[in-house]
């Protein structure tokens, strides 16, 4: 790309009152990160396609005289866009999202840290049986980076969960397990579901010592 092209695709926007320069095609999240502005995320990973599921990265953008909430990880930067990464409303919504997730994984250090920042009460909702917060990091990492597709989602709505394909898991997962450290709930659910899948496939496969 020559200099002229670069200039053409340069985008100027304002994030939290700060002038930020971005390139066309970048998201608000990328632009903010490049300017050292922190936006909390749970389902985002730089090696993966943006997903937009946790909605924690919601920010306020000014639009047609009002403001609108958008997911920073997906929203493409626009010329002269004004973004606020914190506001009373943004914080209120992040707090509720964290409370909803803490019902699944009350002991997750990542959730607890964010929960403290936003004043979330981890006991606001009754404890749910699954740790999984459906961020999809394991599923997408396995598909997009490792190209193994050993773990995927099943079902939908409130019963959506992750599930390993036993045949592939038995062959691949023992050497890999790269998805475990990605998990914001600290791999508890992935390890459990993997062990379950392997048990159904080959009862002799030992996992506990390695997980």
């Amino acid at each position: 790309m020559d200099e002229g092209m670069k200039n053409m695709s340069k985008i100027l926007l304002k994030i939290d009152g700060k002038d930020v320069e971005a390139r066309e095609g970048m998201t608000i999240l990328e632009a903010a990160q490049s300017a050292g502005i922190d936006i909390p995320t749970l389902c985002h990973h730089e090696k993966l396609e943006p997903y937009g599921a946790c909605r924690l990265c919601n920010v306020e953008v000014e639009m047609r005289g009002g403001t609108k909430l958008v997911a920073a990880c997906l929203y493409p930067v626009e010329q002269q866009l004004t973004v606020r990464t914190r506001s009373e409303k943004v914080d209120r919504i992040r707090k509720m999202i964290l409370q909803l997730l803490l019902a699944h994984a009350p002991n997750s250090r990542e959730l607890q840290r964010l929960g403290n920042e936003y004043g979330a009460d981890k006991d606001r909702f009754e404890k749910e049986s699954s740790f999984c917060i459906n961020c999809g990091l394991c599923v997408r990492y396995c598909a997009e980076v490792k190209k193994l597709n050993a773990v995927g989602f099943v079902s939908r709505g409130a019963t959506r969960e992750i599930s390993f394909v036993p045949e592939i898991a038995a062959r691949e997962c023992d050497q890999c397990k790269e998805c475990f450290p990605l998990c914001p709930t600290e791999a508890l659910q992935a390890a459990y579901v993997l062990a379950e899948a392997l048990a159904s496939f080959s009862p002799s496969f030992g996992l506990e010592s390695k997980a």
């Binding site: 909803l100 909702f125 459906n134 999809g136 989602f153 079902s155 939908r156 709505g157 409130a158 959506r160």
Partner: peptide, 22 residues
């Protein structure tokens, strides 16, 4: 109805509906 029909991808819908329904 919506708890079952939500695709389950994003938190506000999946978890919000779950709790509202409860």
């Amino acid at each position: 109805f919506l708890a079952d029909e939500s695709c389950g991808k994003c938190v506000p819908c999946r978890e919000g509906i779950r709790q509202m329904l409860k």
